[in-house]
Nucleic acid binder design. Structure first.
Lengths: 341, 341
DNA sequence: GTCGGATCTGTAAACGATTACAAGAACGAT
DNA sequence: ATCGTTCTTGTAATCGTTTACAGATCCGAC
């Protein structure tokens, strides 16, 4: 009782396999033919085999979205946006997780050559020449949601971290905060590096010196707590001295919302009130920003729009592989909530 | 410059396609043969086509995990567990999202017949006869992570909601709380129904009457806030009368963590303190429980273990499709945090 | 009545792999 | 030298579709 094939349908309907295929694909056919085929399909419960079909037509009608960590809520936003666009275009979206290592990402991109999907949106945490090379050589279109050198010659959608940092610092300054610290993720990651640079520039633009700057080991909640402990105990302060209470920052910017929430927990554990004692600004403006308490002021780096446009770019490239690579930058906005005064 | 095929490799290596295939699949071959094939593979950058391979061998080495809402952190836990098991077994995991509607789920299960994957773990929000029928008739193995009637005859991993509710109520009672309310999700969902029943039983077992009971329109944060507003304004109270402040619950159980967090926001908005004025218990013990403020006491319904065992069950069934369906129940534990006294 | 064109249908060749089968080579035993 | 094993390799069929091509049918126009 194995699955019926198109040949079985053809036999039952008393027509050729070609005719069955044509009817199924909506090519012109007589009413009588359509009728017979549909009856046979119905009767057998026939469902076409996607494997065979995709072998023949060379497309799977699946697209892959690869993210580093499904636990990071920013990807939820992005995933929703991508899903919406690709499903409207008749594709299925498959989401896979790469590890934090660039080798995992390279393996994933290389693996695309096996033909699992017709295209890939990848949001890489770490980028090296190997990864870029694998993307360029990839047989299927790849769109990078993140920052890669323009020399790479690949379609790219990225956030504007420096501008986002300007928004964050500017907002804090406008609220009278001057003693600003920064909790970053690992600076050997693409977003970590971009935010470090952005933070430094934004502070300089406002004529400020960072009070302290720490680097979490990754972009998770736990790492945020860890980094915050370091920050609060002064270990990570720029001048190296153990900061007295008086030397505490009056505002902290975190490189993403998870880190920010971890930070807020540690602040609370130290009896510090947000935003009265310390204001906190996150980045990504994910669902978590809304859900945290107090709700988190967060720089919206346009994850939804990046997801949407990445998907659109991918679809466009699937249509026409010869178009010159585009590099789109999405502008940030600030979502002010109660973690800042 | 299209992708090299096994025929191209064979030509370059000066051997037959069969030999290439054998070398690639690790079947016995002379050193000389292995050498020649590998050199040709290297030279051409050949990667076998998964579509063709899966058409021939009838397997894709992909497994699907279908969840209702990627924004629900409980699925993150489950996803991680499933991923770990299936990737150790040499499968790729693809995650897809079904909508909240049962028709989406049915469509997904039916679609599996197209051969996208070798198996499916589905965690259905709503279940009806159509869905069960489609699961039973599905050509590929399906494991349900959730509660379906045992008459359905499918592999099932489910949580023990009633016992979980007993833990929650028991904990609150042990802390001296008696005026307990309940924020549920939609009762026409599987978890919603299970928790409603469990809550009623648990309250009865403790000789208590619910103070109030409201039903959110779905299992999201926003719905939790909405439901909480209803609860706090007394609209949803069991006796229908607008509860005076004195009539407020001193504890609320929420059907999942997202609802619990939404509730805590509304409590704070009303100037109520958690846990002093109102204790809150969530369910799922997801990452959000740890991240929320105050950290949320939550019933751990074993999402990680359910994910792990669902994956194992699926792999076992792929091995042997004749084994009788198993129904595994995972026992809950309570993670006490600071949202309860 | 015949012809041209349009329209419909069927036959068979792909797509790129795996694998049953057979043929050939190598080798030891008699 | 011959035979039978065993081991290696190649030929060709196959998985379930799509689709190029050709044959069949039908129609109206001359």
């Amino acid at each position: 009782m194995s699955r019926p094939t198109i040949a079985g349908v053809a036999r039952v309907a008393g027509v050729s396999v070609a005719s069955v295929s044509r009817v199924l694909n909506g090519l012109p056919a007589t009413d009588e033919m359509v009728e017979r085929v549909q009856r046979a399909v119905e009767q057998l419960g026939y469902v076409p085999d996607a494997r065979a079909r995709s072998l023949k037509v060379g497309r799977t009608f699946q697209l892959t979205l690869a993210v580093a960590d499904v636990g990071n809520p920013v990807y939820v936003t992005m995933m929703r946006a991508v899903e919406e666009v690709v499903s409207a275009a008749g594709y299925r979206l498959v989401v896979t997780t790469t590890g934090p290592d660039v080798v995992d990402e390279v393996a994933l991109v290389r693996g695309m050559a096996r033909g699992y999907a017709d295209g890939l949106v990848i949001s890489p945490l770490r980028v090296d020449d190997d990864l870029i090379k694998s993307i360029r050589e990839c047989d299927v279109p790849v769109v990078v949601a993140g920052n890669v050198p323009s020399s790479a010659g690949v379609d790219t959608i990225r956030a504007n971290s420096p501008k986002g940092m300007l928004l964050a610092v500017g907002h804090l300054v406008s609220k009278g905060r001057r003693r600003i610290a920064f909790v970053n993720g690992p600076v050997d990651t693409v977003p970590g590096a971009a935010r470090a640079k952005g933070f430094t520039e934004a502070m300089k633009a406002n004529g400020l010196q960072p009070v302290a700057q720490v680097e979490a080991i990754d972009f998770t909640f736990a790492a945020g707590r860890e980094a915050a402990r370091e920050l609060l105990s002064g270990v990570g302060s720029t001048d190296g001295r153990r900061s007295a209470r008086a030397g505490l920052p009056d505002a902290v910017i975190a490189a993403n919302d998870l880190l920010a929430v971890g930070l807020m927990h540690e602040l609370a554990a130290d009896g510090l009130e947000v935003p009265k004692d310390v204001a906190v600004v996150g980045m990504d403006d994910s669902e978590l920003a809304e859900q945290s308490f107090p709700p988190l002021t967060s720089v919206n780096l346009g994850s939804a729009e990046r997801g949407r446009r990445a998907a659109e770019l991918l679809l466009a490239r699937i249509e026409d592989d010869t178009r010159t690579p585009r590099r789109i930058v999405v502008q940030p906005t600030l979502s002010v909530r109660r973690s800042t005064p």
